[in-house]
């Protein structure tokens, strides 16, 4: 593998970190293979969340009254702010990929830093929402202790789905922050350029998917219940 990197240095090309792995015929095929791999991975993410969307659809169809009642206890202002935060983070991520495409190292650093900040904001807001629910006893299944509900059982199922969906989503945000940190460090080491930015693109695609999932979670859970 390193032999090709050396070859490029010998040819006087920029971006010494760049290399084509020995089993890829060309850099373009390597890039597109990586991208196809990421897209296939995103399929698995969609179907992972798909299980939760499926249970939401079924229980909503059964327990419409209970679900509508329960969803009024979610804070749609906080949820809306979080939606905006994630959309902004998607923008900065997309721009970070663009900056990497144009070999603008400094811009990549700034934009990835901003994306991280937005992600952290999202999780902080989520933390306040969660602690509020814990305080009110709006918890899944057997732990549901809030009073004054007409259909406490149905509300328990709603909050089971709410916590599973937003919890798994939050975990993905956390994992995304780890990945962004990883490419941020690699960028600081000067490893990316217009010729080699596949990891930035890949993490970007993942991050947009996290945003995509939330784009559906927010109206389903917070707005229509």
């Amino acid at each position: 593998m390193s032999s090709s990197a050396e070859a490029h240095v010998a040819n006087g090309e920029k971006s010494p970190q760049f290399h084509v792995a020995h089993h890829f015929p060309t850099a373009d095929i390597q890039f597109n293979s990586g991208k196809m791999g990421i897209w296939l991975f995103l399929v698995t993410e969609i179907l992972l969340f798909g299980g939760m969307f499926c249970s939401f659809a079924i229980f909503r169809s059964w327990y419409l009254g209970g679900f509508v009642e329960a969803h009024h206890h979610l804070d749609r202002v906080m949820g809306g702010i979080n939606t905006i935060v994630l959309i902004c983070s998607s923008l900065t991520m997309a721009l970070a990929v663009r900056a990497a495409q144009t070999t603008n190292k400094k811009a990549v650093t700034v934009l990835l830093g901003l994306t991280l900040a937005f992600a952290a904001t999202f999780l902080v807001i989520k933390y306040f929402e969660y602690s509020h629910k814990f305080h009110d006893g709006l918890l899944p299944g057997i732990h549901f202790t809030a009073t004054g509900f007409q259909e406490p059982r149905e509300a328990g199922i709603f909050f089971a789905i709410y916590f599973m969906m937003t919890g798994i989503h939050g975990f993905h945000v956390l994992a995304g922050m780890g990945l962004i940190t990883w490419i941020l460090i690699r960028n600081l080491k000067g490893q990316f350029s217009s010729r080699y930015y596949a990891p930035v693109e890949g993490v970007g695609l993942y991050w947009h998917l996290v945003d995509l999932i939330w784009i559906y979670l927010f109206p389903l859970l917070y707005l229509v219940g």
């Binding site: 090709s4 070859a7 015929p25 060309t26 373009d28 390597q30 930015y197």
Partner: peptide, 16 residues
């Protein structure tokens, strides 16, 4: 292209 033609088809980003 055959095998080891590294850098022959370089990746050129599509910048929007």
């Amino acid at each position: 292209v055959h095998g080891h033609a590294h850098g022959g088809a370089d990746h050129v980003p599509h910048v929007l």
